[in-house]
Amino acid sequence: MCTYQTTLVDLDGSGKTANGWQAMSRASVYVDHPVHFASGHAVMIDVLNPQLGPSARVALEMDAASAQALAEAILHALAETPSDILLDTHRRASSSA
C-alpha cells in the first residue's frame, strides 16, 4: 500500500544533497514503496529544507531492522555524550543557513 502514515519532525542541521551541502529544517519518516531499495516496502526518511525547494533533500530507504538499529545508534550516541558537548551541537548565531 501507499501508507498515509507520515511523521514530520522539525530539525536543525545540514545535509549533503545533489547540490552540495545545504541547511536542513525538517524530516519526514514513513513506511512506503521505496524508489530504489529492492523491497516491497521500506522505512523512508526524507531530510528536507522546503524553503530551498524539493531538491534540497537527503533521502534514505532501508529495511525495518536497519531503521531500528539506526534509531538505537542515534539514541546511544546521545546517551553516551556529555551534556556540555550536546549543548555544543546547537547552531551558533554566526552560522549561515
Binding site: S28, V35, L48, G53, P54, A59
Partner: peptide, 20 residues
C-alpha cells in the same frame, strides 16, 4: 504546483511533507 521541474521522487517527498 508544489515542485515544478523537480525529480519525481523529490516532488513526491515535498508533496508528502506538505500533507499531500
Amino acid at each position: 504546483r508544489i515542485a515544478p521541474g523537480a525529480d519525481p521522487d523529490d516532488a513526491a517527498a515535498a508533496a508528502r511533507a506538505q500533507g499531500g
